[in-house]
Amino acid sequence: MQVSIKYFASLRELIGEASVTIDIEENTTVHDLWMEIIRRKNIEFDNVMMTVNMEYVKSERQLIAGDEVAFFPPVTGG
């Protein structure tokens, strides 16, 4: 199944792309996906924040087809 991924700020620069659509296995969690990304890209990144369909989620959240997942560093607005 396919999900789209977005990256922001320093993580977007580190990964070198702002968004991508990928195929994942059924029952993949957000945590599984993040582990796969840091393995494939060979990066280290602390304190990542995760959202699915624009809502903050716990890392054990299971993904479904068509989800929009975002990974980004701690927010610094205001």
Partner: peptide
Amino acid sequence: QLKSSAPFWKK
């Protein structure tokens, strides 16, 4: 709440 959770990033 805005400071801790609204998705903005400063460079």
